[in-house]
Design a protein around this nucleic acid. Structure first.
Lengths: 408, 408
DNA sequence: CGTTATTTGTTGTTTTACTCAACAAAAGGT
DNA sequence: ACCTTTTGTTGAGTAAAACAACAAATAACG
């Protein structure tokens, strides 16, 4: 006798059957996911959050401990009456490498599977690196970081964040304009050099995942993430907790959405798009800056009082507002996350953006929606890319092989 | 040693544990889903498609038979060597009612859970019906159809397709401009009158589901569906096989996406949107038609040779192409389905739309993508709405109660 | 037309992973 | 010191899927 819509059927098209092994995998994954998101947690919390029986949690935690993925310890603080619950923590020794090739540098990091960046190195390159060069540099940096890791550490793999489109089926970089890469099998190249499993995806998509797990999107299931970088505007959409990938993995190109008749071209030659109208370099030039990070840009922007700069900034905010309005109509998200340059732009005049966008989307869709600045800063892509490499482990803890630090 | 991205984690945020009951529910649902989509299927096919064991399928089918949801019969045709497999068919006696209130009429139908429309009645109304009136008419029509159903039929419930925004949390019609309904608890009203469980959702979303299951979207998991009606343009997006709902259920308002600086307003007062630029009534007027269905419109359009009409149609096609390009960039779908008026518009000059849209989206996202006309015609909303009411049954066959045709 | 190979249904047994109940352990409250 | 509360531990119970062995029903083949 319900009048509410039925529960959305997650397995609507999953006409595959399940068996006991699937249950076990799912439950191990549920426990490990909770632990990797929150850092550590008493057993009793696991029991409550998963809805499973005490004895089952005991069994699952024991198995994860045997796999070397978690550790148990006596609780330090007690939270009330009753026997204190054992504290379960994700093992610090399980890590993944994160790789981010960009126009002027290649960044590599080591990230623990609780999302902590253990180490990070960045090597600048003279020009846009060719793919082979980039793979070589990344591999050398990984080797270097690997040497510094204690013997008992184990590696899940390498996650790569690419400023461009990545084909999911085979992990090939379809097109990365700023790197000038076309149809580059970067994952395969790096895998052959390093001998480690390599996973690869678009940088903005990975950023949205990182924000979902560890940043401003924590706890939300419907997220639209917009990331403004020097190169352009990327996007990531999270629907029902999982990222929008599309048929080949190219979904979420929110910067290339046309919102105006303007003949202005964006980085991919499309006109009147968000990316063509909201341009970091234009504002930078207007401010008389040659090179600046987002922090410096924000400071310069706040200090500047000229009408010219204000006009440019406001026009960009207005364009952003239209795009945000569109995305609200399309996705009806719980939260819109603005990152990088867009976060700077938003903070310049939040009210302008908010009031403008209210005029370009349906009122109903705005109910309880919030616009937020992204929380993760410099480590965003490291966390996101490493998370990609750690995903197989978290999804199937018992059947994922880890590589020791030394030797193959 | 994989270089491909990891399998997307469906349960990424589902940190709930599973137990044996979940398995059983999932497997029963998998079998019933397969059957409802394909009509009928030998047991051996079920075994292969689900990946489950022969004996398990036997057990599941027996349970579904006991529940009166499927019937087994000797196979008529044999498909090769070996003992012939038993044919399993969805029970014809399990039905749902579909209700679609619109500007000038209320349509009610009976649909079997294999997607067959058994009966349909339509009652025209003088003016936009008030919600109470609409509920009353719908209830009377349901009663009438119910009388004609055989005694052994059983009813899953009532599914309602609303031309407007429906809040998911409580099934309230947030805003239906053409009906002039605001914050109307239509589901509750109809439930109280009929005594049957009532489920309600946006019409375009339901249309996209119907096309996914029984129409031009069959077999696809990434679908963008655009529906042009007399009232405006609605949309439905299917991601990874499940509909995009958003936080409150308002996602998929694709008609209200701004693509131009034009001051032209749409039905919700937004300017430069797809709906404001692609207007059925404008073309109808240009053709000198007062009232016509899509078929008549298509015929008139094909017959007309005036430059004026051609110019209007082409401008609308161009606007549609921009929107389609945007959606391709955003969703990277496998297929774009055009329904209703948009299907008519597309068929007027398919090449124009296709060539234009290729210039307004990224090339990579166009790989292997197709634009198609929707396949389900007049029965679209009946199938979609009934599917909504049948979803709980298909998702949890063992724990969903059905109502007999006679008596409460 | 009988024999054989192949596929499927059926039946009984085995296995696995979760639940449940009973009890012990460790805390706070009185 | 004793009770209450919460949690961990252990062993028994259980549901559901897999598996193995056999029977049944077909096509293919000589």
């Amino acid at each position: 006798m319900s009048t509410t819509p039925p529960i959305p059927a997650r397995h609507a098209l999953t006409t595959k059957g399940s068996n006991r092994e699937d249950i076990r995998r799912h439950n191990l994954s549920a426990v490990l996911t909770l632990l990797s998101r929150t850092g550590e947690m008493p057993r009793s919390a696991l029991t409550e959050l998963t809805g499973l029986n005490r004895s089952t949690i005991s069994d699952l935690v024991t198995e994860l401990e045997d796999l070397g993925l978690v550790t148990e310890s006596e609780a330090v603080t007690t939270q009330g009456v009753g026997r204190p619950s054992l504290m379960v923590s994700p093992a610090e020794e399980v890590v993944a490498f994160a790789v981010n090739p960009d126009i002027d540098a290649i960044t590599v990091g080591v990230v623990s599977f609780s999302g902590k960046v253990i180490a990070k190195v960045r090597q600048t390159t003279a020009v846009q690196p060719a793919a082979a060069t980039a793979a070589d540099i990344a591999n050398k940096l990984i080797d270097q970081l690997r040497k510094d890791l204690p013997n008992n550490y184990r590696i899940a793999g390498i996650g790569v964040a690419i400023p461009g489109q990545v084909r999911h089926a085979d992990g090939v970089v379809r097109l990365a304009p700023h790197l000038n890469w076309v149809e580059v099998p970067f994952a395969r190249m790096l895998q052959q050099l390093s001998g480690l499993p390599v996973y690869i995806d678009n940088d903005a998509s990975l950023g949205s995942l990182a924000e979902r797990d560890f940043g401003a999107g924590k706890g939300f299931r419907e997220i639209v993430y917009l990331f403004g970088s020097a190169g352009g505007i990327g996007g990531g959409v999270i629907h029902d907790g999982i990222p929008l990938r599309g048929s080949a993995g190219y979904a979420g190109e929110l910067g290339h959405v046309r919102i105006s008749d303007s003949p202005q071209e964006d980085g991919s030659g499309l006109t009147g798009t968000l990316e063509s109208l909201v341009r970091r370099d234009v504002l930078l030039a207007a401010l008389g800056l040659d090179n600046a990070d987002d922090e410096q840009l924000a400071a310069a922007l706040a200090a500047d009082k000229s009408a010219k700069v204000r006009k440019i900034a406001e026009a960009q905010i207005d364009a952003l507002a239209i795009a945000v309005g569109n995305f609200v109509n399309i996705f009806n998200p719980e939260v819109i996350l603005l990152a990088g340059y867009l976060s700077t732009l938003f903070s310049y005049d939040p009210d302008r953006l908010l009031s403008r966008f209210r005029w370009s989307s349906l009122t109903a869709s705005q109910d309880r929606m919030v616009v937020r600045q992204a929380a993760l800063g410099a480590n965003l892509l490291m966390v996101g890319a490493a998370g990609l490499a750690l995903a197989p482990l978290v999804n199937a803890p018992a059947s994922t092989q880890l590589t020791p630090v030394r030797g193959k």
